[in-house]
Each structure stands twice: as structure tokens, then as C-alpha cells.
Computed example of a mutant assay.
Amino acid sequence: MRLVAPPSKPRTAPALAIAVFLAITALANPASAASPAQTQAPASAMTVATHDRIDTRINNLHARLQITAAQEELWHKVAQVMRDNAGTMDSLRQARTSHANSMSAVDDLKSYGQVADAHADGIRKLTPAFQALYESMPDAQKKNADLIFRTDHHHSAKKG
């Protein structure tokens, strides 16, 4: 199955949060999933490769958003949610890989549903953290963020 990008909506803080989460989930195989007990893995359970990729993405986004010293506390909250979400998706990918040869078609569909649920949960967790950061930004920085996420979101929708 392929995930299809939702129809384009006005670019608001929640849309920006979705774009951030979509970027995070691109790090993990979206067709991967695990049992419900495995969907709540802490970020510390991430593979080294996923940890490195998410830290690179967080650092890149920090620079591109031009996060100020006054915004660092809010940024740290966004970054932690991004790490937690990446850890969950990585756990799902790892479990999917380890069960790939024994899963039935029904198991596959159920696991795909778990990925979709984890994705939606991640967006719900990221939205308020990013919204608080976004609301702290002056207008010029917001416009920069809007452009970054509009472009990144458009790019990820093309790839999907």
C-alpha cells in the first residue's frame, strides 16, 4: 500500500507540524509495523542509523528555521517529540522486518493500520509543540518557516 498525501490546505502552524512529522516518518519504512506493545518504544530504543538521521534532520531544521536563543526551550520540546516519533516508527520498522516472513496478509494489514495510527498519534503530539514554537516567531521567521515547510511538504508529496 502507498500512503497518499492529503489534499493541499492553507499553510498554518498545524500544516507545518504535519510537514515536520512527514519528514520524520520518511526516515522509517512506512509499510512497517509491529504489535501494539511495540508501538510505544522510547527514542532510546532507536537504531543508531535512525538516531543519526533524526539528529541530522533536527539540526538541519534548527538552522533553516533560524531558531534564536530565546526559542531554544520551545525548540527542545519540538526536537524531543520528533525523536520520540522517530523512535516509535523505527520500532515498528524493526518489528516488521523481523516478522516479514511469517506475517499473513491479514497481519500485514493490521500492522499497516498500526503504522497509520502511530503516524496520526505522532502528528497529534508534534502539533502543539511546534505551534508554540511557531507562535513565538516574528512574522519574518514565520514566513521563512512557511516557505521551508511548504517546499519540503510539496517535495515529500511528489516522492510519495
Rank of each mutant, 00 (worst) to 15 (best):
K143T: 10
E73V: 11
N59P: 00
A23E: 15
L22M: 06
N85P: 00
E72K: 10
P7L: 06
P42S: 12
S35E: 12
P14W: 05
K143N: 09
I24H: 03
Q94D: 01
A17I: 03
M82R: 01
A79V: 01
K159L: 07
I18A: 08
H62Y: 11
A105N: 12
L92H: 03
S111F: 15
L92G: 06
A70S: 12
H155D: 03
A31F: 05
S156L: 11
F21Q: 13
Q80W: 03
G122W: 02
K143H: 14
A19S: 15
M46Q: 15
I54Y: 12
V4G: 00
V106C: 00
A31M: 02
H76R: 14
H76F: 05
L74A: 15
H62K: 10
N85V: 04
Q38R: 14
N101W: 07
K158Y: 11
A17G: 13
L147Y: 09
Q114M: 14
A34Q: 06
A145I: 10
L3S: 05
A15H: 12
S98I: 03
M103V: 07
A34R: 11
R93M: 07
P36M: 09
K77T: 04
A157G: 01
A19N: 09
K142V: 01
Q40S: 12
A70F: 03
Q94S: 05
Y112Q: 06
I148R: 08
L126R: 05
T97A: 12
I67T: 14
I24R: 02
P10M: 02
A69F: 13
A86V: 02
R57W: 15
F21S: 11
A13M: 02
H153R: 05
V81Q: 07
Q38K: 13
H62Q: 06
Q71D: 12
A28V: 11
P6V: 04
T12W: 06
A129R: 11
M89E: 13
T151F: 05
K125W: 00
Y134R: 09
V115A: 13
A95Q: 14
N60S: 10
M46C: 10
A23I: 00
T97Q: 11
D55V: 00
T88R: 15
K158I: 12
E72I: 01
L16F: 07
R2W: 03
K158Q: 12
R150P: 00
G160V: 02
S35L: 11
R64E: 15
A157S: 11
L3K: 05
R83G: 08
V4D: 07
T151H: 04
G87E: 09
N101P: 00
A140R: 06
A86N: 04
T12P: 02
A33E: 10
N29S: 06
A63G: 09
K9I: 02
P30S: 05
P36D: 09
L27S: 06
A100F: 13
I54P: 10
R124N: 09
A33C: 15
A116D: 10
L27N: 10
